[in-house]
Every structure is written in C-alpha cells, then in structure tokens.
Amino acid sequence: MSTSEANATPREYPWRMPANWWTRSRHYFWYIVREFTAVPLALWLLWLLVEIKRAGDGPARYSPHGSAPFVIFSVVVLLFSLYHSFTFLSLAGSILHFKLLDRPVSASVIVMSQFAAWAVASGVIGFFLVWLGR
C-alpha cells in the first residue's frame, strides 16, 4: 500500500501515480532523459577503469579497445555527457546565490561563468592529455 493510500481515509479516493507519468509532459520527459544520461555515462566510466587496469600491464601488452560498437557507444556517451553537463550548468543560476561587492550576482552571470570554467577546464585537461600522449 502506498503512503497516499495509507493516509487516505476510507471514503477518500487515494492518489495513484500512473506508471507512464513521465510521458504526459514534455518537461517530465526531458527530466527523465536528463536523469538517465547518467546510466550510460557510469557504464563508460566503469569501462575506463578496466582500460586503466589493462594499461597497467605495460605498453607491449596493451591495445585500446577500438571496435566499431565501442566507438559508437563512446560517441553516444559523449553526447549524453554534453547534454547532462549543459542542463546541470544551466541550472547553476538557480542554485548558487552569492553577493559580489555587496550586490547579488545575477543568475545569467553565474551560468556564463560556469560555462566559461567548463571550457577552460576542458581545454586544460585536453592539453595535458595530448601533451602526455606525445
């Protein structure tokens, strides 16, 4: 018995959430997509751990997994992670709340600064990966 059923008096009709609630609104649908983008991302990161362990065996015995299905999966995961990052950073203006020079910083400035920090961090990490891989 759900909580709402338990709370309802016998003469009340209890609320039951339909299983397809997330298909009833575009907003709900994209919320579920946003949440589920984390699942393939987590799977890919688990695979990355396996790859790192394999790399520990030394360059002679290591060959990166590069099959077509894996490359396609990686591209899909990249798109998912970009979408997840975009939605997350777009919401930063609602989450962060602080003042600068005794004035509240606007949500749009916070969001833009988050995207700027994201771009800089991606550039720095990309540079080091290329530099270390040479």
């Binding site: 709402s4 709370n7 309802a8 008096t9 009340e12 009709y13 609320w15």
Partner: peptide
C-alpha cells in the same frame, strides 16, 4: 489536483 487523495468531485484532501 494531482498527487492528493480525492474527497469528492474536484475537492482534494489538503491535510498533508
């Protein structure tokens, strides 16, 4: 309104 027990017709229980 969704998510609330129904008392009658369009009247929900707002006790919660």
């Amino acid at each position: 309104l969704n998510n609330f027990p129904l008392i009658r017709d369009l009247v929900i229980d707002m006790d919660d």
